[in-house]
Nucleic acid binder design. Structure first.
Lengths: 342, 342
DNA sequence: CTGAAAGCGCTTACAG
DNA sequence: CTGAAAGCGCTTACAG
């Protein structure tokens, strides 16, 4: 691999001149410039960015650490972040902590020692104590999906999503609205539960604890929860599932019980527009604006890099409800006119 | 951010000694070692890996460039690659070219100038001319899913997958097996088409060009293709769809036509176990061993790094058929006993 | 405009 | 075992 020194020698100039030609920051006579460029081409010279970064104390690289590479919002999150990064010539790289706190910690350290200019982090778990060092070192970082004290962050308001779901179901005439919870250590869970309760209150429905069932996160869990809910004496006429997998299992349970969705029972879910679109019937869902979350987070990070002492910001974005067939939609509801026979 | 120099000063030793303590490569007396470690802790000293890499000419970092962050096989591909990378203490970072050749090129350059030790590339498009420089520079690289001349690669044998699908369908008594193609610039397409023909031949079915229809890659495309196939005078009794989205649309078309899957018509697809599992009926599919592809690719890359002059390797892995409800499965077929009423 | 030189923060022979 | 020094490949004042 050739170096700036070789280029300089072959072009019969100093290494400073080569550097000036390549960076364009200092004018160089056309004669020398061309000699340099010719040699660069001939050698396929690739400047050593490590040396450059070491000198200028900037890598133009952002690391994004995600807890689960399989998350349905990842593609849009990444696209949004990329889009914003590209505008300012940053390279975005993604690392995967696999929901292991130890890996997350290692990756954070790896990124710091490699002197990335900033970090986007979707933290795993609920403990944030391992982020203290990062905060104290004032490493530019933005947390995704979690409101970590003292750090910039971008979160979705999951309570709104759940509330809107419930209100939508109630507006469609549903009286008894159940909720299949997701993984208990999912931070969004508590918020959604709150939104669920708020939605009930605002719609004049009573809160009934027995309508809340645990669910983990597989289709089998959803199926199991569905079977148990449908077997009840006072069967609910609407069910909110914490994710599309639960919803899928639930739909199977409904089908097996010879019930019709949405006629007999409505179903709503969260996130994962792809799966919700694929299911039959298509499933109404409250979705995080994942692409916007990605771009906002990156913008926030770039601001933090440029202005390390700005005051902390936490951007909270609203989720949005996409009405589909599973809540009795048809054309009417997808136009916002929620007229459903319960 | 503190440097090795500050640590040395506070611990009253030379910077060489600090380095020796941290690397462990040269023994240091317990007295000095402890003094150093105490200061390291106190300052939260994070060695500058850029400087280290510059000196030792090694970054311990692998870059993986993927053409589409939304690809269903990505999570497993990444996990497999990570697993293998971790075993040898490499950091794996993912970049996203967004199916743009220009971005791919930029990312390759960015990785080279940052001196990653190796690259894993899932190339976009079908042209490989832009990889010439990489090949000539002998940058350690392994291509995924594409057999690029002169470069190591790991590919799945899509023809086998298609062939097995067809044979499975034929064994179930299906006589007229149609094929909805995916995106025309998908390299796997041609292979699958070949496998489709082979499968027909081996099953004693005649090849009929009119049974092959274009399809792009959305549920709507699948729906459209399905509608047209089902309306035919001589309606096929089995359809192979190039991806799960096409299959989803196709299932809708079947449902709308008041036909039953698998009773009236069988459906099979490729990859995307998640979606195939979610659809109703669950869809039989030929799947790439994506996790294994990831780990094999990484292992190959690490070998190439250690032994730059080894001869080129191209690993071809078999796809595997997962039989589900859509091909008339039931318990029998999922046990491998393909007894289907056609 | 051009070149010589210092310095970014490490590692590693080399003396002692 | 320990320290002084060279050097990895760049950028950037500073003279000329």
């Amino acid at each position: 691999m050739s170096t700036i020194r070789e280029v300089a020698r072959l072009a019969r100039v100093s290494i400073g001149t080569v550097s000036n030609v390549l960076s364009g920051s200092v004018p160089v006579s056309a004669r020398l410039r061309e000699r340099v460029l010719a040699v660069v081409q001939q050698l396929d010279y690739q400047p050593n960015h490590l040396a450059r970064s070491l000198k200028i104390r900037e890598t133009k690289m952002i690391g994004m650490v995600i807890d689960d590479i399989g998350r349905p919002i990842l593609p849009q999150l990444m696209r949004g972040a990329e889009e914003a990064a590209l505008l300012q010539d940053y390279l975005l790289v993604l690392l995967h902590s696999d929901q292991k706190l130890e890996r997350e910690q290692q990756m954070l350290t790896a990124l710091r020692t490699r002197r990335v200019d900033g970090i986007l982090l979707a933290p795993t778990g609920t403990s944030h104590s391992h982020l203290r060092a990062i905060r104290e070192a004032k490493v530019p970082i933005v947390c995704l999906e979690r409101d970590v004290p003292g750090l910039d962050c971008v979160v979705a308001d999951h309570s709104t999503g759940a509330r809107e779901c419930v209100r939508h179901l109630a507006a469609g005439g549903r009286r008894s609205i159940a909720f299949i919870l997701g993984n208990p250590d999912d931070a969004a869970g508590a918020e959604r539960l709150r939104g669920y309760r708020e939605g009930l209150a605002e719609s004049g429905r009573e809160f009934d604890e027995t309508l809340i069932v645990g669910g983990a996160s597989s289709a089998d869990d959803g199926h199991r929860a569905g079977v148990s809910l449908l077997a009840r004496e006072r069967r609910p006429d609407a069910i909110l599932a914490a994710d599309a997998w639960l919803a899928a299992g639930l739909l199977r349970a409904i089908h097996e019980a010879r019930l019709r969705c949405p006629d007999d029972i409505a179903v709503a879910s969260f996130d994962d527009p792809f799966c919700c679109e694929l299911l039959r019937p298509r499933v109404t869902a409250a979705t995080q604006p994942s692409r916007e979350m990605g771009s906002k987070a990156m913008e926030l990070l770039l601001k933090r890099i440029q202005e390390p002492d700005r005051r902390r910001a936490c951007i909270r974005l609203d989720t949005f409800l996409t009405v589909r067939e599973s809540t009795g939609a048809g054309v009417a509801a997808s136009l916002g006119v929620t007229s459903v026979t319960g």
